[in-house]
Each structure stands twice: as structure tokens, then as C-alpha cells.
């Protein structure tokens, strides 16, 4: 079985982002970029399935600017076999991403697509579910455990108030949650090796997908900041203030 893992290049999770003063967006100039953390977990899960003999090949794909090649090389250095870059400088919304991925799935015929539950930039949490819908496949979202069995995959999902396990017929789409695994670091020899692994370049037009935006972004602004309140000197003072001043006790 082949596993397809879509990955996104995003602002590194350690970076404190800056909103442009003119409201036109978030400043991405000279900001460290990395693979979306949930996608790293997806790559790791695919590699573990391959190492356990449950899959033969791990193909990674990224849709984004030329520099997304770096993100793909990172995935290759972790152990993925080959990569596909769908190059575009436009911002592509989840629906169009899902349509492009559908085209790749039709060409590659993977048994499983594993991707992050959301990207930490736009926080949409849509692409995996949309891809499953377009393919007519089942989905196992927010996965904290994945077990492949005959023609099925059992996915334990993190839901409000507990865990739910569903059995999804293959082929299927899985989206990863934080506790699924801890991604490995790429070793230096593997980083060198990754430079020689195959990377195919395509464009959204190759898949016949129109990537025109459906959502108009009118403004991007800083959130309203809370103002620090007062320091209290003791527990007694705290309880008193909560009772009399704040009225919440």
C-alpha cells in the first residue's frame, strides 16, 4: 500500500507573529518557516506504518511556493520516499487544496492519505474532511491512534469529552491530533540523502483546478488585548475581591 502525506509550509510555531499595521495580513518577511507540526505527525505516522511492514511507499506532497521544496526535503529526510510539489504563489484555500489533492490521489492511488488536522496559520481544520468528501471516502479525524487491519483502519479519535474509535473502510483519509506520536528528527546523513530523492514539480493547472479564492479577506488585525489587573497580597484578599469587586463568587 502507498501512503500519501500532504504537508504545508507555515510560520514556525515558535515565532511570535506580527500583524501588519495596515491590516493587510500577517508579516511573513524574514520569518522562520517550518513544516506544519500536525503534518510532521502525519509524516511520522506514515513512516511508522511503512516500518511496520504495513505500507510500501510514503509519498509527500506540498502545494505552495517554490520554497515549499524545503518542507518536502524535510519530509524526505525524515524518511519519505519521494515528493510532489504543486507550485503556486497564490494563497490556496482548503477547498482548492482538497481538489488538487484529489487529482494527486487519482494519479497515485494511495490506500491511505494522512494529514494534519489543521494548519497552525489559518487554523481552518478543513482539508482532510473536504478531501474525503470529494473522494467519497470515509474519514478518521483528530486521530490519537491508528491501527491498520484487513481492508479497514481503526482510528481512535480525540472528541469532546473522551475518545471515540471508528473503523473506516480503506482507502481512507486520516487527520492527526497531537498525541498520535512524537515525530523523529532527521539525521544529518538522511538530510544529505534527501537531497537526491525524487521530487516532481507540477502546478494547480495540471490538475485542472481553479484556485481562485472563495473568501475575501477584508482585514487582518491584532486581537483585543486584555489589560493586566492588580496583584493581590494574600489568598484572603483574593477571595474578598472576587466576592465584592468582581462578584463571581
Amino acid at each position: 500500500m502507498k501512503i500519501l502525506v500532504p504537508v504545508k509550509r507555515v510560520v514556525d510555531f515558535n515565532v511570535k507573529i506580527r500583524v501588519k499595521p495596515d491590516g493587510s495580513g500577517v508579516d511573513l518577511q524574514n520569518v522562520k518557516m517550518s513544516m506544519n507540526p500536525f503534518d510532521e505527525i502525519a509524516v511520522e505516522e506514515a513512516l511508522r506504518l511503512k516500518e511496520a511492514g504495513k505500507a510500501e511507499e510514503v509519498v509527500v506532497v506540498s502545494i505552495g511556493p517554490a520554497k515549499a521544496e524545503e518542507t518536502l526535503r524535510t519530509a524526505l529526510a525524515m524518511g519519505a520516499d519521494r515528493a510532489i510539489l504543486v507550485e503556486t504563489d497564490d494563497a490556496v484555500e482548503p477547498l482548492a487544496i482538497a481538489k488538487i489533492l484529489k487529482g494527486i490521489v487519482e494519479a497515485e492511488s494511495p490506500g491511505l492519505v494522512i494529514l494534519g488536522k489543521q494548519a497552525i496559520d489559518d487554523d481552518s481544520n478543513q482539508t482532510g474532511q473536504m478531501l474525503a468528501a470529494l473522494l467519497g471516502w470515509g474519514q478518521g479525524t483528530f486521530a490519537s491512534k491508528v491501527e491498520l487491519a484487513d481492508g479497514q483502519v481503526a482510528v481512535t479519535r480525540e472528541i469532546d469529552g473522551g475518545l471515540q474509535t471508528v473503523s473506516v473502510r480503506l482507502p481512507a483519509v486520516i487527520t492527526t491530533d497531537l498525541r498520535l506520536n512524537e515525530p523523529r528528527y532527521a539525521s544529518l546523513p538522511n538530510i544529505m540523502k534527501a537531497k537526491k530523492k525524487p521530487l516532481e514539480k507540477t502546478t494547480p493547472a495540471d490538475f485542472g483546478v481553479a484556485i481562485a479564492a472563495r473568501l475575501r479577506i477584508l482585514k487582518t488585525e491584532e486581537p483585543v488585548r486584555r489589560i493586566a489587573g492588580v496583584k493581590v497580597g494574600s489568598v484572603a484578599e483574593l477571595v474578598d475581591k472576587l466576592k465584592t469587586e468582581a462578584g463571581v463568587l
Binding site: 500583524v19 500577517v26 477584508l218 482585514k219 487582518t220 488585525e221 491584532e222 486581537p223
Partner: peptide, 8 residues
């Protein structure tokens, strides 16, 4: 950390 205003 940022709030977006979007129009469908």
C-alpha cells in the same frame, strides 16, 4: 494572535 475579517 490575529483576527481576520472574511467575506463569503
Amino acid at each position: 494572535n490575529a483576527i481576520q475579517t472574511v467575506q463569503t
